[in-house]
C-alpha cells in the first residue's frame, strides 16, 4: 500500500459532546462509556463516492417540485464546501431538508398545529461543482415549537448532509439565519461551546446572492475535516 494520510480530529469545544443534558433526548441516547480511540485504517480514510449521479437539474429548487408555488419568503442559498485548508470539495452530494414557511414538516411525527403546504416538501439535493460551490432555491423555514422544555422553540434552520472524500468527512449539521432571536435559547445550537464554531453554523445575508425583484440571498460555507500533516504508516 502507498502511504495513508488520515483526517485530523477537530479541536476541543468545536464539536458537540454526545451528552448535552439541556437537549433532553441526548440523555438516553449518548454512549455511556468512553469511545475507543482508533487510528484510522484504509477502512476509515476511504468512503462512499455516492449520490452525485442521482441529482437532477431541478433537485436544488425546492420551489419547483409541485404544481404550484409554495407560500413563504423565497430565498437563494449558496456557498462552498471546503476542507480545513480552504480547498474546495468538488462533485460531492449535498442533501437538505427543512420545515415549510409555517414551521411544519410533512412528516407523521410532526403534530405542530400549523398548516402543511401542498406545494412544499422541503427536500432538496445538489452536487458541488468543480470549485466546491452549491446553490439552492427554497423558502425560508419557519420556527416551530418542540417539547424539550417549557416554551421551547427551534430557531429557523435547514438540515444539511455532506459526504466529502472519506467516511471520516461525513457530516450532518444545521444551518441557521443571522439575527434569529431564538438562537441564544436553543440547546441544539448552544451545545457547541466554542463561540466561533457556533457562529459558523449561521449563514450571512448577501446582496451579491440576492436576486432583484425575486429573492433574498444567503451565503454559507461548510468546512469538512481536513488531512493530517503526515502519513500514518510507511510500507
Amino acid at each position: 500500500m502507498s502511504q495513508l494520510i488520515g483526517y485530523k480530529r477537530p479541536a476541543p469545544g468545536t464539536q458537540p459532546n454526545y451528552l448535552h443534558a439541556p437537549y433532553q433526548s441526548s440523555i438516553k441516547r449518548a454512549p455511556g462509556k468512553p469511545l475507543v480511540k482508533l487510528t484510522q485504517t484504509l477502512s476509515e480514510i476511504t468512503g462512499p463516492v455516492y449520490g452525485h449521479d442521482r441529482v437532477g437539474p431541478l433537485d436544488n429548487d425546492l420551489t419547483k417540485q409541485h404544481a404550484g408555488e409554495p407560500l413563504g419568503e423565497r430565498i437563494v442559498l449558496s456557498g462552498r464546501l471546503l476542507d480545513e485548508s480552504g480547498r474546495p470539495v468538488p462533485h460531492s452530494l449535498i442533501e437538505i431538508w427543512q420545515a415549510n414557511a409555517c414551521g411544519r414538516y410533512p412528516h407523521p411525527g410532526d403534530q405542530h398545529d400549523a398548516p402543511l403546504d401542498p406545494n412544499f416538501t422541503g427536500y432538496g439535493r445538489a452536487v458541488t461543482d468543480a470549485e466546491g460551490r452549491y446553490r439552492f432555491v427554497t423558502i425560508k423555514p419557519g420556527a416551530y415549537p418542540w417539547r424539550n422544555h417549557h416554551n421551547a422553540w427551534r430557531p429557523q434552520h435547514i438540515h444539511f448532509s455532506l459526504f466529502g472524500p472519506s467516511f471520516m468527512t461525513r457530516l450532518v449539521t444545521q444551518m441557521y439565519f443571522p439575527g434569529d432571536p431564538l438562537l441564544p435559547f436553543d440547546p441544539i445550537f448552544n451545545c457547541v461551546t466554542d463561540q466561533r464554531a457556533r457562529d459558523s453554523m449561521v449563514s450571512k445575508f448577501d446582496f451579491e446572492t440576492t436576486i432583484p425583484e425575486f429573492a433574498l440571498g444567503y451565503q454559507w460555507d461548510i468546512v469538512l475535516r481536513g488531512r493530517d500533516a503526515t502519513p500514518m504508516e510507511n510500507k
Binding site: Q15, S85, Y105, P106, H107, T121, Q174, I188, F189, A197
Partner: peptide, 17 residues
C-alpha cells in the same frame, strides 16, 4: 486553516432528507 463546521442532530424528521 478553517475550523470544521460543527455537527448537529439529524432530528426527528431525518426521513424527509
Amino acid at each position: 486553516t478553517l475550523m470544521p463546521t460543527a455537527s448537529a442532530t439529524v432530528g426527528p424528521y431525518l426521513h424527509i432528507g
